[in-house]
Design a protein around this nucleic acid. Structure first.
Lengths: 205, 205
DNA sequence: TTGACAAGTAACCAATCGGTAACTTATAAT
DNA sequence: ATTATAAGTTACCGATTGGTTACTTGTCAA
């Protein structure tokens, strides 16, 4: 039965970190929501920081598994040399839609993304995770992918901005949307329009 | 001399709120950075909350003045009925570039944007300000502007996503960029490409 | 000269923070 | 039956929180 409580602590802590931030969430808050006292939390984790560390470790593990499942190079790496090899446009589309569903509908990933958003400016480690997972990381990734379609790094970056900028904005739209079911179709329409535009302009495919 | 200290308290508090969040910043932090004790802060503001309220009020005032200076309808309003009247593409371009410079280089606006980013999930008022100023607000604004170029609301929204999504992403890119001077040209290139694409596709201008 | 006032200080307040110590209780293996 | 052990409790710790009180100091007007 230890695994059950230990798991519920992680989920509850992450949900609170996503809403109130790491500093804004007390051990009493986490324990209270589980019907426990805060001392019980220290039977499972040595400190508040260790709870956060375990959350980060789990996110890294989940992302590596997902990247492997979709046959895409991992995101966290600095070198994107292998990214612009053979990634057909269909695979990019499927991967992007799945990524969006993951970061919005999956409770763990959605709360983790919100937590990163709240912690990015005062914690360098969180800033790097936010960059790699949500912001500049995927942008650089797409720029590397599009590099083989274009003649210059500048145009590849513009294509990456065209492609990922709206997707990045839709994360925020999703979070504050009253009807969240309307958001994913906006992304799919955007990707379809983008693919059509690229395929008509770069006919060397 | 009261105005000087009162002003420095606001600026210092906002800079700390942007880095550590509202809850993560103590009155001691603010006072210490000014070479004062926290009791001195209460000679100028009744509470920590009043400092935040004054920052919000100042931002609203600054934005109204800027919107008026650029001849654009205000952002915070719910009704965009007047938005799609006569806003030439040149004015939109100039306004957008100025907005980006404002939210990145202007210290007050830059710190305010970061503070809103950190507070958006746990404070409904901050969530609305973030939406109106940074995320869904400008998106809806651009969708209303582009509505007169298109046949449907759906296509207007797609155009707005194409236009504002990259701009929104570049805010994040700017914050973590080592060479910040390279970011604004990315936005200007994007806008030029967008304008060229729109003018070739919608030739009823 | 005096007196009002703005702006600052040191010292304190109750509440809360992350974390610890001592104790209870249920379960399960020997 | 006994004994570990895991999982919980209550009560406490020093530090810090937002905020208050009493006091001092400099300036400027009557």
């Amino acid at each position: 039965m230890t695994g059950d409580t230990k798991e519920r602590i992680l989920e509850t802590a992450l949900a609170l970190f996503a809403k109130k931030g790491y500093l804004g969430t007390s051990m009493n808050d986490i324990a209270g929501k589980l019907g426990l006292t805060k001392a019980a939390l220290y039977k499972h984790y040595a400190s508040k920081q260790e709870i956060l560390d375990r959350l980060v470790a789990r996110m890294n593990q989940m992302d590596a598994e997902r990247a492997a499942a979709f046959g895409m190079p991992e995101t966290a790496s600095d070198g994107f040399a292998e990214a612009y090899m053979k990634t057909p446009i269909d695979k990019i589309r499927a991967y992007s839609v799945a990524q969006f569903e993951h970061w919005t509908k999956e409770p763990f990933a959605s709360n983790f993304r919100k937590m990163l958003t709240l912690e990015q400016y005062h914690d360098p480690k969180m800033a790097k995770l936010y960059h790699d997972y949500i912001a500049g990381g995927p942008l650089a990734y797409m720029a590397a992918v599009f590099r083989r379609l274009t003649d210059s790094d500048e145009e590849a970056m513009q294509l990456a901005l065209d492609f990922y900028g709206p997707m990045y904005l839709l994360y925020s739209v999703y979070d504050s949307a009253e009807n969240k079911a309307e958001v994913a179709p906006l992304l799919e329409a955007h990707i379809d329009r983008f693919v059509a535009k690229v395929e008509s302009h770069y006919r060397k495919d």
